[in-house]
Design a protein around this nucleic acid. Structure first.
Lengths: 192, 192, 192, 192
DNA sequence: GCTTAAACGAGACGGTACGTCACGTCTTCTA
DNA sequence: TAGAAGACGTGACGTACCGTCTCGTTTAAGC
């Protein structure tokens, strides 16, 4: 089936390229990021990079959103706390310097490349979002969340509000007050 | 004050370029949009375009988000309806074919160019967002909105959720159910 | 016939433009000479220049080769001295800083524009070259020049050698030795 | 010494570009010669050209003046014949359709770019001019040329007269009479 | 230990768009 | 009508980056 003949890929190159990509995108931004510069910084060459990733966007996407993390939500016991935790985690991932520098630029590529679009959605669906989705379904069954609340819509709202906050407040970071207030808003609504 | 000496700019060129930009970005997308093609379609030339807009991004931004309209919210009498209306309007602006085609690509440029960032924020602040902000302040004073709800955060949430929905659901449009559900969520929260 | 109605041209502009052209071509060279810069330096505008000269090349040509001079050859009494004087004068005209800076660049334009070609030939034919031509014809009649020497060919040789010397010896100027030697060569030939 | 790593340049491109340059400059002249057109005609692209030659002028210079040939002068036995042969060869090089079309335009570039100036002088010094210089030194030693005749000045004169003739007599070619007369002039001088 | 196949570095390749520049003309207003 | 001002169409410039290719060289695994 697989005949892994020939010289194997050097795993140090994978790591060096990912690290170089994250460092460079943080320094110069996505628009001024070039594959040649990444190769130089990683001590390798463009073909070695294109052997591993099909395009610059795929590379950045992998460099900037680390895949591994277990992301199990802690047992908070309260849906309000779950929402809050979800906001924090989403913001944490997207606030990483490299991620924040790359996010806006990546959106253009994602819209243009269905491959990337699917990859990114899958990555998030398997991560934080998936955990919260399950939690919300349970909470609805227990009656802690009113019937008719679509988990997917809530997740969309949490992610969207976080993204928008990061885009609008260009320089700053999101503080505790923001998380408190936003969790409150989604939990209680705006009704008095 | 202004000394309009010299040959005045031909306003027909401004209009033709904006129209051509909107048409082309809808057809080919932001990534494959070239200034030369815009110029050709508008019946003019690249220098004439660069005389008017400092970059392709500035041009697209102006072509895609109509500037003028006062956009006064109708007197709905209910904050819930105001929120719903606000969602609809935000979605309407961003769902325009040209806007939808340009939005993701534009984000990268906006992040890289503070000039554009400021221009875009100002444009939205003066439009729909400004009207809702005022309405919310009044509603809070009348007691229809609970104290402690930050209008800016709500706007952020509305805009963010809409943006995220448009990004994630690549092909589709947002239907009535989506607006109903989202307005409900923001008005009542998730509590039973 | 001539109906000089309307505002007359300002002769100061003619002079200012010619002076500015000569100064600028000396400073930046023909290749980097722009009409806009000439206009700015002369305190006028491009249209005012194009009302007077049909092209940049025509303007430079007039600015760099002053037309007026009487150019009567002194009565030297000897053909050898006439040749020498002719070499000196040709070199004098072409060694003017402005002329030397403009000459090579002008050649390209001259070759491309028959109008200019004719204008330049005429200018020189009426000047130094014409005087020498007459003198040579007389000298041939008197027997001081051997029969069969074509005056036109000699002039061609004098002008060509001077031009080539100026082109090859880029930085330097032509000294007395050069004139002595060249006059000797043309007068006596290379025979022992 | 040389470490020819990386993909080697495709020599067919070098040849195709030089041929296309010579063909195009002959057809449209130096002024209307564009690098894009050369690239198109050669079946390659602008960057491939700029990778090889630092400027359009360098490319034209190489395309138009063939480099290699040793051009040993034939053993004529007489200095007069050597001079005549030298005139013929200089005229032959510069009368090539491509060379003649490019020469005037090249002069402007040569004056503006010391690099080109040096390259061109070297090219000619190694070619015809060098051979004649040696021949003249021998002839002077044998007493066939009078002492005091500077070979460099004679070469300057030969080249200059030829150049001037080609420039002035725009359309025509130089005929046998011209060579006879000019050789005579330089050999015998104008003395009776 | 030899073979083999793929990865490696280097850098040229075709392609395409970029944003700039200068030319010579045209249009407006003012003298 | 000239002049000042500056926008106009035209068209080329030289650069940059993409993602692919072709070299010659190195490196492991399989025979």
């Amino acid at each position: 089936m697989k005949a892994p003949s020939g010289r194997p890929r050097d795993p140090r190159i994978d790591r060096a390229v990912l690290a170089a990509t994250a460092a460079l995108v943080t320094k110069v931004g996505y628009a001024d990021l070039t594959v040649a510069a990444i190769a130089a910084q990683a001590g390798t060459t463009k073909p070695a990079i294109y052997r591993r990733w099909p395009s610059k966007a795929h590379l950045v996407h992998e460099a900037v959103f680390p895949s591994g993390e277990p992301t199990s939500l802690p047992q908070t016991g309260s849906v309000a706390d779950d929402v809050r935790e979800m906001l924090r985690r989403t913001a944490a991932v997207w606030s990483e310097p490299a991620a924040r520098a790359a996010l806006p630029g990546l959106m253009g590529e994602i819209a243009a490349d269905p491959t990337l679009h699917a990859a990114l959605l899958e990555r998030f669906a398997e991560g934080v979002w998936g955990a919260l989705h399950a939690r919300l379904v349970e909470a609805t069954a227990r009656g802690e969340v009113r019937a008719g609340v679509d988990p997917a819509a809530l997740i969309e709202t949490i992610a969207g509000a976080t993204l928008m906050a990061l885009l609008i407040r260009a320089g700053d970071h999101l503080d505790d007050d923001w998380f408190d207030h936003m969790a409150d808003l989604l939990t209680k609504g705006i009704r008095p």
